[in-house]
Design a protein around this nucleic acid. Structure first.
Length: 287
DNA sequence: AGGCATGTTACAGG
DNA sequence: ACCTGTAACATGCC
């Protein structure tokens, strides 16, 4: 999936284009996402106004009157915005499965401001789920999440306290959404490279300085990626169907056998698997 | 052909 | 109850 920066990019463009718009039409082509879309779904959303759009970790939230629509993009979900008049021009490829990707358009929202929102997801690991009269922080998916990387509560004291009695390696720790929420495989690899820390290093052996560096670089890497529109490896597209640019700045992710990008370092980027996930690191500066 | 892919969860076993 | 690791979900790409 899209990790935190990619969701943030989507959130920003949804805010710009469809905040305060009203949902005036819903069409569902495939209910079988990660959670099956109930038959009542369309009735509950029709004529609802989008009052606010927010992000928590890798989740998008559309705030409606007394309802929250929680959206997760899974591994390959995309939200596309199209002007209704353009959709009409491309009607054949838009509504019918003539092109390769449109057969994975699962949900359409027609909005009263001239836009159509399309949910497209090849692997269907993503989901749309509606909650009534509930605080965002009490939603099952949200309530177990650790702090946002940019929040004040993600600090050295919290970090040190969390890793007490833990035997995890640092890579799996950063991947743990209960520890810090929003990071995934790409960004964890990049953050550890920035910190010059080996992904297998046990979190109980981290120095206080390294913990500080991990917090600083987590924020720096995410922020820089957001400024580049997120990363697109294979799937990620923003709401206009454009790819992000952060992948051009990867130091380690997918860079197996390349030279380390630190000029003074003569190391090579190596690949290994940690908990079944590919991990990339420099064999010299991440000893 | 088979392994791999930005994620999460349910489950088994300790 | 907690912790850890693994398999599964569905599809496409190399």
């Amino acid at each position: 999936m899209p990790e935190l920066p990619e969701i943030e990019i989507v959130k920003r463009s949804l805010f710009k284009m469809i905040n305060k718009a009203k949902i005036i039409g819903i069409k569902i082509n495939n209910k079988n996402l990660r959670y099956k879309i109930p038959n009542t779904f369309s009735n509950e959303l029709i004529n609802e106004k989008i009052l606010r759009i927010s992000r928590r970790s890798k989740y998008l939230i559309l705030h409606l009157k007394r309802k929250l629509l929680l959206i997760h993009l899974g591994m390959s979900g995309k939200i596309l915005l199209m002007r209704a008049r353009d959709a009409a021009i491309f009607k054949t490829s838009f509504y019918y499965n003539v092109d390769k990707t449109s057969k994975h358009n699962h949900i359409y929202f027609t909005l009263n401001n001239g836009f159509i929102l399309i949910y497209n997801d090849v692997r269907r690991f993503g989901f749309f789920k509606l909650f009534y009269n509930i605080d965002l922080n009490k939603i099952p998916f949200i309530k177990k999440l650790g702090p946002e990387p940019f929040s004040k509560s993600f600090n050295k004291k919290y970090f040190k306290n969390f890793i007490k009695n833990k035997i995890k390696n640092i890579k799996n720790l950063l991947m743990d959404q209960k520890f810090v929420s929003g990071l995934g495989n790409i960004y964890v690899n990049e953050i550890l490279y920035m910190c010059k820390i080996n992904p297998l290093k046990s979190c109980k052996n981290l120095s206080s300085g390294e913990i500080g560096q991990l917090i600083i670089n987590t924020r720096a890497v995410l922020k820089f990626s957001i400024s580049k529109g997120g990363s697109s490896i294979r799937d990620f597209k923003n709401t206009l169907g454009k790819t992000g640019k952060f992948q051009q700045f990867f130091h380690v992710y997918s860079m197996e056998n390349k030279n380390c990008s630190r000029i003074s370092c003569k190391g090579k980027i190596k690949k290994m698997f940690i908990s079944k996930r590919s991990s990339f690191y420099c064999n010299k500066c991440q000893k």
